[in-house]
Amino acid sequence: MKVLVAIKRVVDYNVKVRVKADHSSVDLANVKMSMNPFCEIAVEEAVRLKEKGVATEIVVVSVGPSTAQEQLRTALALGADRAILVESAEDLTSLAVAKLFKAVVDKEQPQLVILGKQAIDSDNNQTGQMLAALSGYGQGTFASKVEISGDTVAVTREVDGGAQTVSLKLPAIVTTDLRLNEPRYASLPNIMKAKKKPLEVLTPDALGVSTASTNKTVKVEAPAARSAGIKVKSVAELVEKLKNEAKVI
């Protein structure tokens, strides 16, 4: 079966971002960008499904600026067969991205779509669920285990109190949690081979999708800084401070 994997180019998870002086957004000029960590897990899961003989083709898709081709090439080096970039320079909302993915799903007709559970920049945790709603498919969010048998997929999900397993009819949407797998690294020969794999570039207009939004970011600020703390010398001093100064125990 065909598996579609959605990936996002985001600021690298090790970068401590700074808010721009004009409070319009965070400063991403000259900052290291990478594939969103949850998306790496999504690619890995698709590749493992292919290695097991379950998946026959992996198509990786991203919505973003032309530079997102780098992340698509990374996914190709990890084992995806071909890539689609829906090019959009502006920052789109999760709903707009889900609509674009829906158009790609209609075109490609995959049996399974894997996304990360959230992007570490917007921290929205919406796109997979929205894509599931728009396509009318079942959704297995925050997946820590995915097992396909016949025309269903069993997804074990990380929920607040532990784990829950649901069974979904295929085609279905899965979003990955951290513990689904350990993503592999791309080898140099595979990085070279990935340069020759097909990468198609589309636009929202070509897909006939309006990316208009009902949300507007008015301002972006730095969070309130915590006042500097102190170092205590002993456990006894710590207990004394907690009891008499902070009064929390």
């Binding site: 999760s94 669920q129 929205m130 709603a133 925050f142 009902t214 949300n215």
Partner: peptide, 22 residues
């Protein structure tokens, strides 16, 4: 919560509106 995060974006998409998370 994990339920709220799971269900609400699906609702927003069905109503064709953007969601505001957390």
């Amino acid at each position: 919560t994990s339920n709220g995060k799971n269900i609400l974006p699906r609702v927003a998409a069905q109503l064709d509106v953007d969601q505001i998370s957390e």
